[in-house]
Design a protein around this nucleic acid. Structure first.
Lengths: 197, 197
DNA sequence: GTCTATAATAGGATAGAC
DNA sequence: GTCTATCCTATTATAGAC
């Protein structure tokens, strides 16, 4: 076994820093989150942060977005795998998202939106990481829809719409401090998927 | 005529400041935008900014959100009034939004999302202003759908879905630097509205 | 790899002349 | 209402001991 493989038991400072950056930027955005705050939350020192991320805040944000990307991809995959019917799976996912948002008291929306929105114009690597995340999520839905028998022009478009709508409903729910947008989105996405067969 | 009514010809520093704050925060977010930058863009001095907004940056953000609220409400109203059929009107609106986003080179998404996302958790007045904007936009769509003959449980839900989907599609388009999410959203929203009759 | 100290700069906000 | 100067704090980032 190579020494480069991760040893899961160790304190793993680098992973703690990424998790802290991801969680804080998800709620406060890129510019609203300080590196010192990240270090404190990760129980690391400033020196350790710059040791692992010599590229500074931008490199940290890219790592945070990759982390949020994988995080939501796993949640999405689990939800899609839980039911053969994609319509039912999407409805259940929206309910789970609504419950998570309410449990966080609303600040914890999409794992990458707030991180990417502000600096996307100035930092191309941050924009690219966010675009890759959206594309991966779309691809997961696309595969599920095709497996369920929906042919390809429709499956491609529905995958796009699904990510857009879930993203927008989570944003609306967060801003309005209500689960209603996500509940409604789940119902209509199911209706559209069922109509596409 | 009262002296309190606005005299449209004057340089109107206060309005220039609000417009600058709205435009900058739309692209860079609340924390990514400095008051000095706003003053510079508005061709005003720091003293003038604090003269009109003694509450500082938070009061400025609330005014910027109100400005973006009215701005999009007018665009939405105009789009809905342009066609008797709400389905066709929504499709046209999505195409207009896509064109505007591409013309801005992608940074100019929803007028209030970036402004509200970061500080919503800490500043209740900013969150409330953003929630009011979303509610107003939903109400405009709701009225249009009811006028077009869609009964009320469906019209209410469809208004919610419309705002969520447009919001999410604009976000996806911005992040992905592509007009495709908005084009697809426009098509499916039209399909759902037509099916609701 | 970790820690502290510090440099260099930019941020929000205020004071007071005009 | 406008302008300039300034205070105070926080920020990113680096240096160098351990």
């Amino acid at each position: 076994m190579s020494t480069k493989t991760k040893n899961a038991g160790a304190p793993d400072t680098r992973a703690r820093i990424i998790r802290a950056a991801s969680a804080l930027m998800q709620r406060q955005g890129y510019d609203g989150t300080g590196i010192k705050q990240i270090a404190q939350q990760a129980q690391a020192t400033l020196g350790s942060v710059y040791h692992f991320f010599p590229g500074g805040k931008q490199e940290l944000a890219v790592a945070a977005i990759h982390h949020g990307d994988r995080e939501f991809a796993e949640e999405l995959s689990a939800a899609l795998d839980a039911d053969d019917d994609p319509a039912a799976a999407l409805t259940a996912l929206c309910q789970d998202l609504a419950a998570g948002l309410a449990a966080s008291d609303w600040p914890a929306g999409c794992p990458i939106t707030a991180t990417a929105l502000g600096p996307a114009g100035r930092a191309p690597d941050i924009q690219a990481a966010a675009a890759a995340a959206f594309a991966r999520w779309r691809a997961l839905v696309h595969t599920k829809l095709r497996t369920a028998g929906i042919p390809d022009p429709a499956a491609h478009d529905l995958a796009h719409l699904t990510i857009s709508t879930i993203e927008g409903a989570e944003l609306s729910a967060q801003v309005s401090q209500s689960t209603e947008p996500l509940e409604i989105a789940g119902r209509y996405l199911a209706q559209l998927v069922r109509a596409a067969r």
